[in-house]
Design a protein around this nucleic acid. Structure first.
Lengths: 359, 359
DNA sequence: TTTAGCACTCGGTTTGTTTGAGTGCTAAAC
DNA sequence: GTTTAGCACTCAAACAAACCGAGTGCTAAA
């Protein structure tokens, strides 16, 4: 009644912050007395109670049941994350840990992401998530055909992002030679480099076939494979680490809730969508039912895209109870993503292997 | 006392089987009356009780507490799996399901395994596991260096099993040309093909360097990468699907137990060891603490290696409570592995991509 | 507007009771 | 010797009553 529904008074903010902090810490509802004890407030518990009642009316707090303390609502958490949070400063120790562990894994982006998600999980004590988002428009890069046996060769394709994919191929008639494969390589590179998968047309294929002369029988198979390689497999990927940590938190001791959450993680789709759709390069905090993902009602997902040259290569994230230690999680993800960027940019050998190979 | 500790009488077998079956079904301890009801036995519950007491003495049954029914012991399950089990016959419907779903995924072994583990999970309603075991002795196969930019190229290496691995490389001095890379390719293939990683010696490296002439500066980097590629990354991989299913079973409603189990799954090491060490091509059933993996006390792991040309390419398995429906699980894994073998053998494009890319 | 005081609420815990499935044992029957 | 019927006993699970206490809302005074 003091504040006319608009902004929160300083005291309200202080009380809200105290409640969120305390609830993150302990997971229990917070009462007026407790707030008073741990905060520097020049008023009595009764006043705090009044304030709390108002905060509840405004939607920032809620009461699990009539005679219990207050718990932050979704809106409360949102406000907390957006304006109240004090950024957690990582200790030099933690920074060193990140550096050491990530450096050891440098090489494949996949491995880096996975390692980062593991780290995120163990540092924050929530569940870590490593994500390779869906990508939709890759251009064809370079090809190379590798001879193995007279009827058996490997086609290696590099896309415009430098991802390497490969496929074994066999011919019906054993006509392969190193020479014919070299020709194949040359012709493919001449005609296909720079195109998108959709730009491979029948006339183009026929032109290629014509140019291959006596080895034209190879072309049909090859094109199909190329199409497959560039198009189909990249539906994104997601790896989870530290699910066991969820169990520490009493909010997941309800088996049915936990089961639902695990089911969502299992499907991967929802979360993958969520992350793939995010346009922001910054850290996103998705609290409970803010997202389309219904199940995560008392959970929160924090993730940070890993961007290079304007392209989103992946994301690392953390999943945990709604009362997550946001300050620490944000700092950790920030730190990790910084390090990943460093590694990706600075290193000589980067992004090896096939980023999609493991899917 | 009737049987002198050696073999089980027919009646004892019948009773044991009845108890295991019933316990698999319901998860509760089984009493003498229940056995009598559901079995064709010409005796009274008292007799059954006597028999059960003897079976307990022999170690096949145990009592959760003094006045409860009996539950099969580890030994009991072992005996059941080894001799009592009636193989479950898959319905044609189920067989068709396997075929359809696996065919759609043909291509990468990784993908097949993953799909198979998903299938195994959904068909048995336990947790599915897809495993790529550690491999220890790979020989170097073919190389190919792909030119990208004056200071940037990709090295593609194929090992003797046909696995393709790749790595991006950059040079300090931009001296790369298509020609120099072709030379590199040729020299590497000449000297390294057929060797194991351990056989790359310093003299050999120097010889290669000499042969590369003006481009010898590439050699050092390349060799290091080769070593990495062939050696380090292959610590096996393991993917889990359907963890949420575990929660259906009351044995995992104890949070601490569940947490331990998830922790073991998380580490992956133990299970990977277990599977990698198995020399058998047949289905293995690991019940509870039979294995070194301590945690799985009330769980069982059933897995079947996927073998091609005498080489173990991977394994699919199922993890669930000790009172698992072994008949169904065995049949499912048998069926799946059969189909995988078919696909792997019959198909022209096989085992593409990097089997280890996703690690 | 703040504060002190007080009655009230209500989930959680403790404690006690009941219930019933299941056993082991014994003595009689086959 | 084996099987059976009967009975006393055990013990976890389910239910109920009682209690506790943190926390609230409200009122009346400061």
């Amino acid at each position: 009644m003091s504040s006319e529904k608009r902004a929160l008074t300083e005291r309200k903010k202080q009380i809200l912050k105290a409640i969120v902090d305390a609830h993150i810490e302990g997971g229990e509802p917070i009462g007026s007395k407790y707030v008073l004890k741990n905060q520097q407030l020049n008023c009595s518990s009764a006043t705090v109670r009044n304030e709390m009642a108002e905060l509840e009316e405004m939607g920032y707090l809620e009461q699990p049941h009539a005679s219990a303390g207050r718990v932050p609502s979704e809106l409360g958490y949102r406000f907390y994350v957006d304006s109240l949070i004090e950024r957690y400063a990582m200790t030099t120790n933690e920074i060193a840990q990140i550096n050491a562990l990530l450096k050891a894994k440098m090489g494949e982006l996949d491995q880096i992401l996975l390692a980062a998600s593991n780290l995120a999980s163990s540092m924050t004590n929530y569940t870590g998530i490593a994500i390779k988002p869906r990508v939709n428009s890759v251009l064809i890069g370079t090809f190379e055909a590798i001879y193995l046996e007279p009827d058996h060769y490997i086609l290696v394709a590099v896309d415009s992002d430098g991802n390497v994919k490969s496929k074994h191929l066999r011919t019906d008639a054993p006509i392969l030679t190193q020479v014919s494969l070299a020709k194949l390589t040359r012709v493919l590179n001449t005609h296909l480099t720079g195109l998108s998968a959709e730009q491979i047309t029948l006339p183009l294929m026929m032109k290629i076939e014509a140019e291959m002369g006596s080895d034209s029988s190879l072309v049909n198979d090859v094109i199909k494979v190329i199409y497959d390689l560039l198009n189909e497999p990249d539906n994104g990927e997601m790896r989870i680490s530290g699910i066991d940590r969820l169990l520490q938190y009493p909010e997941y001791s309800d088996v049915s809730q936990l089961q639902e959450l695990l089911g969502t993680l299992e499907k991967k789709e929802d979360i993958l969508n969520l992350v793939s759709q995010s346009e922001n390069e910054d850290i996103s905090v998705v609290i409970g039912s803010e997202s389309q993902v219904k199940v995560m009602n008392n959970s929160a997902l924090v993730f940070k895209p890993i961007v290079k040259d304007g392209k989103t290569l992946g994301a690392i994230g953390v999943l945990g109870p709604r009362r997550m230690d946001y300050a620490k999680v944000l700092a950790t993800l920030e730190g990790l993503s910084g390090n990943i960027s460093n590694i990706i940019h600075a290193n000589k050998q980067l992004n090896g292997g096939e980023p999609d190979g493991g899917k």
